[in-house]
Design a protein around this nucleic acid. Structure first.
Lengths: 128, 128
DNA sequence: CTTATTGCAAACTCTTTGCATTGGA
DNA sequence: TCCAATGCAAAGAGTTTGCAATAAG
């Protein structure tokens, strides 16, 4: 297993992700670090996000426009996301009920399910 | 309302979409038309897909890699897709149960839902 | 001192756009 | 004839990569 240096760029990126738990694009992260005077190259942002995603501490989502966005997210329990269209805040949604629904489909369509993705969008109760 | 000419490129693209109902990328479509000797520029493929998508006869989906893919799809009844990981065949899945589930969440999280996306992946009964 | 990590710039991929030309109706 | 649609090539946006310089352990 390879080493894992604690560098300034990594610290800055992880701190930012911790402070704002919504899906952010590499460019957004890069810009915000720039504002905070934490010079980090865009390439490093991409490399760090990829690493965190592989480690499993970051969830990646491709938005409607095809841009990949990232958010810190503990994957312990399988869950889905409700994303506020206004503020981008993300609500975790457990999926017990959904899993049952999925099994029913499996029976019905002879489809051997090995995955499902689901996402809700709307307006959260803060933005309402 | 603007006209809508029946041109050779459009015919070729629509015919291809009708003959293969799975999600295809613009490049895949372009390549296959090329093989069939139906010279159509990639730009036209994009423009035609966009037009069909706007008209509502084509469903667009951004895959994990961020590439947009298209498939002919009647949107009459709201439904979801089960996509075979092996052959790419798409099964329509009605979503009555799901809508109920969604409403429940709305109550629970104070989230005013205005949309949800869901997709199943696995292996269809032909590929099994 | 060793080697993982960074920054930079170039390369790549997918998609969009401007403009002159073609071709439906 | 008129204007929508096409093809081409150039431009954009997002992402990846090679390589020399830097810095962590």
């Amino acid at each position: 297993m390879r080493a894992d240096y604690a560098t300034r760029p990594r610290g800055a990126i992880e701190r930012l992700l911790e402070s704002d738990r919504r899906y952010l694009s590499a460019t957004q992260i890069h810009t915000r670090l720039d504002v905070e005077q934490a010079r980090v190259s865009l390439a490093t942002v991409y490399r760090t996000l990829e690493r965190l995603h592989t480690k499993g501490t970051v969830s990646a989502r491709v938005d409607e426009r095809g841009e990949t966005t990232y958010m810190l997210c503990e994957p312990e329990h399988h869950h889905h996301h409700a994303i506020c269209r206004i503020c981008g805040r993300v609500e975790d949604v457990p999926c017990r009920a959904l899993d049952e629904f999925a099994s029913a489909l499996q029976q019905r369509y002879g489809f051997e399910l090995d995955g499902h993705a689901m996402e809700f969008s709307g307006v959260c109760n803060t933005c309402r």
